[in-house]
Write a protein that binds this DNA or RNA. Structure first.
Lengths: 158, 158
DNA sequence: TATTGTTATACTCTATAACTATA
DNA sequence: TATAGTTATAGAGTATAACAATA
């Protein structure tokens, strides 16, 4: 495959990936019937909190790419659904520490496992060495490719 | 690499790809100083029109995933910038045919070429056989993978 | 009557601003 | 005084609704 064709193919693939419906379809599939309060909007917050561990709203906002006001509002939804708790942050009692409940952790594990299984199953149709190459290049592209996030702390939205 | 690890890696990569900033960064890079009227918002319209060929707003809307009212408004922006023209559609004089001007076609070629070059250059660091596997699997994922668009006519947003 | 194009309106999501509380 | 949390407000983007035009 020549250079230009490769570039054009990846261009088209990227163009389909970044469409709004693609994102929506992924979130719809993963959050379906999982728990009250978990939607396309709250998913990045609950998932980010699981990846980052207990932290305050400003810290979480920085790694999920949202304003702290948005994180605060979505955290309230998750709190109301029993997936997240607010406690005083021992580092500074002005702050509020966000932590997942046991149920919150279960929900994240279920959703992320669901996606992992969907992807693993689909990838099974390809030869192992090709899958390894795919994963290696795709991971590197998102982490340090030409359009990687400047913020090295940026977390996946899933 | 075992199944679960592969799934988890692709999950994380996908989670970074679908972040809003990723999309914004790509569009910002491609539209920088290209032409008046071309922004993150008008890009899918001008690009879709190039891929689809002259058509009316309703037809274009169906393949770019927007409402015809949005397409109509963005088309007006592109028309004002001299990138697109409106003529009566010979198929039905109630309709309006959208067509790119010569300048409009040049702009699309420049932007898409810019992305193709960025991707080709970056991919040069990998062995050719691994790149081929990457492109093959990625393309198939976007076209017929578990989260592919139901509408087979759906066009890349780039 | 039915459908497109266009414009006006409403809705959704996000950021900014403003306010409270506390070190 | 300075900073986090929260809530109110404004802005950006999209879809829906409404209307004119024409087969």
């Amino acid at each position: 495959m020549n250079r230009d064709l490769v570039g054009a193919e990846v261009t088209a693939a990227l163009g389909l990936l970044v469409r709004r419906e693609t994102r929506e379809r992924i979130y719809a599939e993963l959050t379906r019937d999982v728990a009250d309060g978990v939607t396309e909007l709250t998913y990045p917050v609950i998932s980010g909190l699981e990846r980052r561990g207990p932290c305050n709203a400003a810290e979480l906002a920085a790694v999920v790419g949202l304003d702290r006001s948005v994180v605060s509002r979505r955290a309230s939804v998750l709190e109301g659904a029993g997936l997240l708790t607010r406690t005083s942050d021992p580092r500074d009692s002005r702050w509020t520490l966000l932590s997942l409940t046991e149920k919150g952790r279960e929900v994240v594990a279920m959703m992320r496992g669901r996606l992992r299984d969907i992807l693993s199953d689909w990838l099974d149709q390809w030869p192992e060495n090709e899958v390894n190459a795919f994963v290696r290049i795709l991971s590197d592209f998102t982490v340090s490719g030409p359009f990687a996030h400047n913020n090295a702390e940026a977390l996946p939205a899933i």
